[in-house]
């Protein structure tokens, strides 16, 4: 665990909404090491989504530095960002974001498709990935034929398919009932145990607490261990 997988230094991002400047990220610094399970907790409007977009290489900072495995993300163009997202980041979304017209297997194959993997290896790797989340028998099903929990597991398999450096989960249990939420969190735990680096973004303290490390964000500023915010959340 020598060099961190993610190094963020003095990250700034501002938006102008109706003439008013909003500091979505205000001087954020963060280091994430390989194999970590980090939860980022914050209420809505805290800059949580901006941070997640930044970590997921969907957006570039106004200033500051973001190094992902030593590469400076801030200086990359759209195409370079796309291939970084493809190879280094596995997204897990709140509402699964599966393509409804593709089968579970085809959904999992998608990142490999964009990585230019040949059809045969693509199929094998995707199947392998589906096995990891226990859905090998549902490979030919369409997302609409699967339950919410199963859909999220397909999404996790998709995130894993290209063997990325980090898994970025944005409220992965937000659209699920408590029992399936528990299932999904168990899978996340298992994935972390076998060495995957996971970043979990949530507003739910009970979910965040299951991570090994927790940071909180409020008004665009980050605090280690949740800080005061944790107390603030605990009161609710």
């Amino acid at each position: 665990m020598s060099t961190p997988i993610i190094q963020i230094k003095n990250l700034m991002k501002t938006y102008k909404i109706g003439g008013e400047t909003v500091h979505a990220l205000n001087n954020v610094s963060l280091e994430i090491k390989k194999g970590e399970f980090l939860a980022i907790i914050g209420p809505s409007g805290s800059g949580k989504s901006t941070l997640m977009n930044m970590l997921g290489c969907l957006d570039r900072p106004d200033s500051g530095e973001y190094l992902l495995e030593g590469k400076n993300i801030g200086k990359m163009n759209d195409n370079q960002l796309a291939s970084i997202r493809n190879q280094k980041i596995g997204f897990i979304f709140q509402n699964f974001n599966l393509l409804t017209k593709l089968t579970a297997l085809e959904n999992v194959e998608l990142p490999l498709l964009y990585a230019g993997v040949s059809a045969k290896i693509r199929r094998e790797t995707a199947m392998e990935s589906l096995k990891k989340v226990g859905l090998a028998d549902r490979a030919a099903h369409l997302p609409t034929q699967l339950s919410g929990g199963q859909q999220q597991r397909v999404a996790i398999a998709r995130a894993l398919a290209a063997n990325p450096s980090i898994l970025l989960a944005d409220e992965p249990t937000g659209a699920l009932d408590s029992r399936t939420s528990k299932e999904i969190m168990e899978i996340m735990q298992e994935l972390n145990e076998i060495g995957n680096t996971i970043i979990l973004i949530t507003h739910d303290l009970t979910i965040a607490k299951q991570a090994r490390r927790m940071v909180s964000i409020q008004d665009g500023q980050l605090q280690e261990n949740g800080g005061e915010l944790l107390g603030h959340f605990a009161m609710h």
């Binding site: 759209d78 195409n79 997202r85 493809n86 997204f91 599966l98 393509l99």
Partner: peptide, 16 residues
Amino acid sequence: TKEIGIRKAIGAKRRD
């Protein structure tokens, strides 16, 4: 639009 967003998030380039 959503599909395009998903495809782009998981690594589709402009060209794709």
